[in-house]
Nucleic acid binder design. Structure first.
Lengths: 244, 244
DNA sequence: CCTGCGTCTTAACAAATATTAACATCGAAA
DNA sequence: TTTCGATGTTAATATTTGTTAAGACGCAGG
């Protein structure tokens, strides 16, 4: 783990836009170090007590759960976090996590100690509620993942995952280019959707041949976003984005 | 909706055991009314602003999400709550829910206003964190549902759901009898597991013929809990039960 | 008592997806 | 450059699950 002394203030990106400027101004100085991890690295491990939380600045991280004892254990991705997500804020009230957090791509994260969080919000119930809400948006996303894996067929699942991820990546307000660096391997997508890597390959070909979107080398290029949202039956309400 | 003036104090059941006695003592008087719903009734509807939350006293309620526009819309159960669960405490910070809450069986719930919650916890950051944690256990359960629907085949899914539900129902400390009144129809179970009702029927027969458990008329009788946990590859860590 | 409705049960068949295997492609390391 | 390993691609086949349909069963209302 590399840690650098912070040299410049963090920008308020992605989901952090849900915080008011004054609240952000109070929280931001608490991010005193930067942590960088390389793809595949386990950022924090299930069961290990945590005294800090992480704000994702760049890259993609996943929450991974192991199912089955010892050998033959399979992994499954139950969440993906994009830049601007407060990755494990829920470790603040819970103290211990029930899942691993892994770097899917090379990532940069800003670190804040729970002690610091506590001193900032303890006498500010409204601020506390806002952070609480942030963790509940993650819960809503989890519900949607259960929904996706429970009700949708393969094509729709993948389209829906893509629709969710790009909507969340756009949430920061950066220009919408139609191109997204997900950097997920096909088996990664399979893990997230409960499908085999081979089947992901078939689905990606179908999406490509439908002139909907193209996924090459971790880069998602969306040619027809309306078509993608239609296939995905995508309704972003569950993301609790401002102005919906 | 029937509402009664409360006549006797509520007992601290199920998940509410996670609160300390003094905290419970402060919260309990806030539950001033009882609400009863009959099976199938929608308790609160997606998108509707809420000014109160509900503690489930008796029966089973589900969180249900509709997928697809207008006609041809399918439903999916993304969570089930058992007695002792603070069903929609997350409505306190979020104000609005992204899903419906429906009564699966006839249910009794205790109502507490958000105003009351606020006045009790606003100057008690530690108490706030405990309630925050309660909502995050729900999030952990959602993650597990995504995992279940994503990685497991039908038999294991159903066994795992059963294992989860009975573990949570036992959490209150009541005597473990091996018999549980789930009162879910087979299509309900299918909704929760992302399987057809017909296939649930096949799975239930398999579980019965394996002398593992029997599900008749909404009553789950567990003959061999070890076998059930084995089939389910069940590991209750994610429930954050005390003493694990 | 019958009737009708909902749920359960089962079977036959169709569709979706997993598995396996073989080969291609690309980039990194020797 | 060459080789190696990881990832992507495709096809053949096996398995799982969905769909449809039909009958059984139980229960509430006439």
């Amino acid at each position: 783990m590399l840690e650098f002394k912070k040299t410049a203030p963090l920008a308020q990106i992605g989901m952090m836009h849900q915080l008011s400027a004054p609240h952000w101004a109070q929280l931001e100085p608490g991010f005193t170090t930067l942590r960088e991890c390389t793809a595949g690295e386990v950022i924090s491990e299930r069961g290990q007590p945590l005294d800090h939380s992480l704000l994702l600045v760049d890259g993609i991280v996943g929450r991974r759960i192991k199912v089955g004892r010892k050998q033959g254990a399979r992994h499954h991705l139950v969440a993906l976090q994009v830049p601007g997500d407060f990755v494990d804020l829920h470790a603040y009230p819970l103290k211990v996590l029930d899942h691993d957090i892994v770097a899917i791509t090379d990532v940069q994260m800003a670190v804040i100690s729970h002690e610091r969080v506590k001193s900032v919000i303890d006498d500010q119930p409204e601020f506390t509620r806002q952070l609480w809400s942030l963790t509940l948006v993650d819960a809503a996303i989890h519900r949607h993942w259960a929904l996706r894996n429970g009700t949708m067929r393969a094509l729709q699942r993948v389209a829906n995952l893509f629709a969710e991820l790009i909507t969340r990546m756009d949430a920061g307000g950066a220009a919408v280019t139609g191109s997204y660096a997900l950097n997920l391997s096909q088996p990664h997508i399979g893990d997230a959707c409960g499908l085999s890597g081979v089947h992901i390959n078939r689905v990606l070909r179908t999406l490509r041949e439908a002139n909907c979107c193209t996924y090459v080398k971790g880069e998602l290029v969306v040619q027809d976003r309306a078509a993608l949202n239609l296939i995905a039956e995508f309704d972003p309400d569950y993301l609790y984005l401002p102005g919906s």
